[in-house]
């Protein structure tokens, strides 16, 4: 199979990735080759197979919903590219 330029641009849009024209061309070719390779999975009849999302046999544990100390505000904001008072600062989200 071969991805189209429009499909590559659509995927990049979904993934919120700026790509150069050169990157788009390269990924179009490379992803097409990888997806071709992956097409061999269709050789197998899996109509009666349950999918595996996790290999864990046991059910996931639950705990009491208790209030516990978390990271301090200072820790939470310490890696922020821009912070102001008690908040992360970002450019406008709405026009």
């Amino acid at each position: 199979m071969s991805l189209t330029q429009a499909e590559v641009e659509h995927i990049a849009q979904l993934a919120r990735l700026d790509l150069t024209e050169e990157e788009k061309a390269r990924y179009r070719e490379q992803l097409s080759a990888i997806l071709d390779y992956a097409a061999r999975l269709r050789e197998l009849d899996t109509s009666h197979i349950t999918p595996t999302a996790s290999v864990l046999a046991a059910s996931l544990p639950l705990r009491e919903d208790e209030v516990r100390p978390g990271l301090s505000l200072q820790d939470v904001l310490s890696n922020a590219p821009q912070a102001e008072e008690r908040q992360f600062r970002v450019p406008p989200v709405l026009e």
Binding site: R16, D18, A80, P81, Q82, V90, P92
Partner: peptide, 18 residues
């Protein structure tokens, strides 16, 4: 680019993500 890591500038939030 909001809570940690590299932030490139942009006019709107979406531009910052991309």
């Amino acid at each position: 680019g909001v809570r940690f890591g590299l932030r490139e500038s942009g006019d709107a939030m979406w531009d910052v993500f991309f």
